[in-house]
Design a binder for these strands. Structure first.
Lengths: 242, 242
DNA sequence: ATAAAATTTGACTGTAAGTCAAAAAACTGG
DNA sequence: CCAGTTTTTTGACTTACAGTCAAATTTTAT
């Protein structure tokens, strides 16, 4: 299934370049130097192909998320790892967030073949499950108060904060631009505000999470961050505009 | 411009019934009993028409939001009004959130005519501006601590929570369904958790916001809630399934 | 070498957005 | 009421792109 990878690779490029409407299967066929019909031998529909692109990124995301479970530290530190994983994926594939958002749409999903839809769902659940498990651990260990908001509330709040920030970032609302607001840059502190509000101990006022951040960077995602560094330094070495 | 309203009305119906892909201009032409070319006399493109539908809802939203500014009470109570406004719009037009989300996409916006794009932006800004103004007032009145998160952070956090919840709700993720999580039902408490975390006084543990909620229902949105009541009671009087 | 299986493809169809010149309808001053 | 002018409407197009399929080509098995 070499061909499948080739198609996915180039579809990913086209999506990154021109978004959803930019993925033209005639153009893609030309680029991979096979006919359009070949693409349809591997994927049931355009949406199915997009799902395959999405799935590849989602698998990596799940892998990075799962590292949170074995991070040595308290429960809130483990949740920080999840936040970092999300942030790293967003930086590595800036266009992916809007693709993934589209793929979660009902009208798109219905055109994805069953097996791939099952895979997407399974991997998607794995990401949620990591966060949910950490919340449960926090409750058991007493880091979360028994009388506070429920596990579901905290999960839902964190996911909302993350999804909302990604949405705002990809939409580039002119209001936020004018106000100098960069949603993804603010996400980390917004997590802290929310988790403090939920009384998830230790609060960010009574624990030095900067050390946690350093540990995460050096122990958990060193490889990914180095790779990221390389990409961004490359692009910043481009001849300056004008 | 009677014609324009007729087209928008029916386009709205079609969008509500079958979503984005369900808005077929041939079908719409048939329904309004004019030809497709007539539609194109009023709107530059399909996306432009969708923008007109979006704009109408957005105007109402801005109107409801603006009532927060004159609500008698403390700054955090005024922010509660904004939350209620958002929630009421979501209940009145359950399909609108996904339409609006789509309309904020770059690839859609570029097909909307300039004047309508300007209107959309202006009205959109008005909604943000209400929330921002209330945050500024809170800071000035001392309800928000000087050394806490910035105005921009709080604004961004609240918008993220709201947008994220709407997104989760419209996507109906199977994981959340299984876990019994209804994002929009949880939104109100998630605001409280976040605002408590930001130390926006009075905290929801030291003030009875249930009374605020009652005042908002009876004094600010009585009409809209009655209308909503009517709609939902009508649909619940439908013959029970099975 | 050859038969069978898998893969590829050119040439097709179908659908829906978008265009335009001409017809129809709505105003206008006399 | 009418000739002339402007506005609105429309049927009959074009274009773009997703999707199909039978025939040709390549690969694999024996």
């Amino acid at each position: 299934m070499d061909r499948e990878q080739l198609i996915i690779d180039h579809a990913d490029d086209l999506l990154a370049e021109h978004g959803y409407h930019g993925l033209n299967l005639d153009q893609l066929a030309e680029r991979i130097e096979y006919s359009k019909a070949t693409i349809y031998n591997h994927f049931e529909s355009k949406e199915d192909l997009m799902a395959a692109v999405d799935l590849r990124h989602l698998k990596l995301r799940a892998e990075l998320f799962s590292r949170a479970l074995i991070f040595p530290g308290n429960s809130r530190e483990r949740m920080c790892v999840v936040g970092w994983a999300d942030s790293i994926i967003a930086q590595m594939y800036p266009h992916w967030s809007s693709l993934h958002q589209l793929m979660e749409t009902h009208s798109i999903q219905e055109k994805v073949c069953q097996t791939r839809r099952d895979s997407l769902q399974k991997i998607g659940h794995r990401c949620f499950e990591v966060a949910y498990e950490i919340i449960r651990q926090a409750r058991l260990s007493g880091d979360l108060p028994q009388d506070g908001p429920s596990d579901a509330h905290i999960l839902c709040g964190l996911i909302s904060l993350a999804k909302g920030a990604h949405l705002l970032e990809s939409n580039q609302s002119s209001f936020l631009l004018k106000a100098g607001i960069r949603p993804l840059d603010m996400l980390s502190l917004n997590y802290d505000i929310f988790l403090d509000g939920a009384q998830w101990k230790p609060l960010h006022t009574e624990f030095n999470y900067q050390i946690t951040d350093q540990r995460i960077q050096s122990d958990v995602f060193a490889e990914e961050l180095a790779h990221l560094q390389q990409i961004t330094s490359n692009t910043s070495h481009l001849p300056p505009a004008q």
